[in-house]
Amino acid sequence: MNRAAAEARGRRAERRAAWWLRLHGWRIVGRRLRVPVGEVDLVARRGRTIAFVEVKWRDRAEDLDHAIDEYRLRRVAAAAEMLSPRFARAADSIRIDVMLLAPGRLPRHLVHVWQP
Results as ranks from 00 to 15, higher is better:
N2S: 03
R3D: 12
A4N: 03
A4I: 07
A5F: 04
R9Y: 01
R9V: 14
R9M: 14
G10I: 08
R11F: 02
R15S: 10
W19F: 02
W20D: 14
L21Y: 00
R22P: 00
L23R: 07
H24T: 13
H24I: 12
G25L: 14
G25C: 14
G30A: 08
G30Q: 03
G30H: 01
L33R: 05
R34I: 10
P36Y: 07
G38R: 09
G38Y: 05
E39H: 04
L42V: 12
L42D: 12
L42K: 07
L42I: 12
L42C: 12
V43I: 13
R45S: 07
R46M: 11
R46I: 10
G47M: 10
R48V: 09
V53A: 07
E54I: 01
V55C: 05
W57S: 07
W57A: 04
W57C: 05
R58Q: 10
R58M: 05
R58H: 01
D59C: 00
R60L: 07
A61E: 13
D63C: 01
L64I: 07
L64H: 04
L64R: 09
D65Y: 03
D65F: 02
A67G: 02
I68W: 00
E70R: 08
E70T: 05
L73D: 02
R74P: 00
R75M: 04
R75H: 01
A77M: 05
A79D: 05
A79N: 02
A80R: 07
A80S: 12
E81A: 13
M82C: 03
L83Y: 00
L83P: 02
S84L: 12
S84Q: 15
S84D: 09
P85C: 06
A88V: 13
A90E: 15
A91R: 13
A91E: 13
A91F: 03
S93H: 09
D97S: 09
L101C: 10
L101H: 06
A102M: 05
A102C: 05
P103N: 10
G104K: 04
L106V: 06
L106M: 06
L106F: 01
H109A: 10
H112N: 15
V113G: 01
W114E: 09
